[in-house]
Amino acid sequence: MNNQVTLNIIRFVVLVLVQSLVLNNINFLGYVNPYIYVLFILLYPIQNNRLLFIFLSFLLGLGVDLFLDSGGVHAAASVFIAYIRPVVLKFAFGMTYEHQTVKIGQSEIGQRFTYMGLLILIHHLVLISLEVFNSGKILLILKKTLFSSIFTLILCVLITILFSQKSK
């Protein structure tokens, strides 16, 4: 249990720093940036205190916002996916989730893909629509959402594969 807490604290700090110092300078094709700090929300233990989880997600988003001068867009998007995570979990993992036995690091690759893909897509959609904040630019929003989501998803899957090997 204690191990879990330290792991999550370290993950929190490392993800915020990596996001703001490294990943936000990628600007692939001019505007595509991966937002892998959502990994914290994706990998947070499933048996949790939901209040604390939502609050931590808020802090995570706010931390990224502080570095990127983006007002509260990352905080809003993070809180949003933290709140709807159980629904997506149920959708992606079905019965196994009901029995509380899911370990995201050891789940099937297909299920993991749906779970991460859905949450990342929703997160990016909220994030980018808030960031652009202009309904006249829906095309730009969708374009940015799609490309950034793909980029984030690939990175997230790679990172989980990379780090889950170690724990076995």
Partner: peptide
């Protein structure tokens, strides 16, 4: 959520 929206 509302707090972050207001910040935005």
């Amino acid at each position: 959520f509302l707090f972050s929206l207001s910040l935005t």
